[in-house]
């Protein structure tokens, strides 16, 4: 296991589209272990994507269980994640390991259904809402070379009470 270096914007590798994982083998699992160790070394961070450490494959980890008041599935490794359903829009504040010292508001779908493979290669499906759905969308964006600063919404907001800040 090893902690991996986080790429920081404007590193061009963060702008590349990651490739699907063809086979979930021991080498992939070894990389996932390193990615997990990297994530766990970063307090306050609830997700990480493989391209953030320079590996351009469609692998993400999310774990929002530290935010107990948000509904969540705990620690999940998602390989080749694909959003199959989304609805609702909600604005929330995001930050990114790859964009230090900046946070901003981003509009995301509130409800998401996602299919993927886990670290054993088994096909899985989850329905995620709110904060966890936000984390998922943020990480999947990394796989497509997108950063949250590409999707910022203005500072001003309406008066509607938000639930996803």
């Amino acid at each position: 296991m090893a902690q991996l270096e986080i790429l920081v914007y404007p590193d061009e590798r963060l702008r590349q589209i990651s490739q699907p994982v063809i086979e979930v083998d021991d080498e992939i699992r070894s990389f996932i272990s390193d990615l997990e160790e990297t994530l766990s070394s970063l307090p306050g961070c609830v997700g990480i994507a493989a391209p953030q450490v320079g590996r351009l494959e469609r692998i993400i980890i999310i774990d929002v269980s530290s935010r107990q008041h948000h509904k969540n599935h705990g620690h999940r490794v998602l390989i080749n994640p694909l959003i199959t359903f989304k609805e609702g829009d909600v604005v929330g504040r995001e930050g990114c390991l790859s964009v230090p010292d900046y946070t901003g508001k981003v509009s995301r779908s509130k409800n998401i259904a996602v299919t993927a493979q886990n670290e054993l290669g088994t096909h899985v499906k989850y329905e995620m809402v709110g904060y966890e759905a936000r984390a998922l969308q943020h990480e999947i964006d990394h796989l497509d070379g997108k950063l949250f600063i590409d999707s910022l919404v203005g500072k001003r907001n309406d008066l509607k009470k938000r639930t996803d800040f």
Partner: peptide, 11 residues
């Protein structure tokens, strides 16, 4: 007055 917590998601 509407007070809401801001729970910044960092990923």
């Amino acid at each position: 007055m509407h007070l809401v917590p801001i729970d910044t998601m960092v990923g």
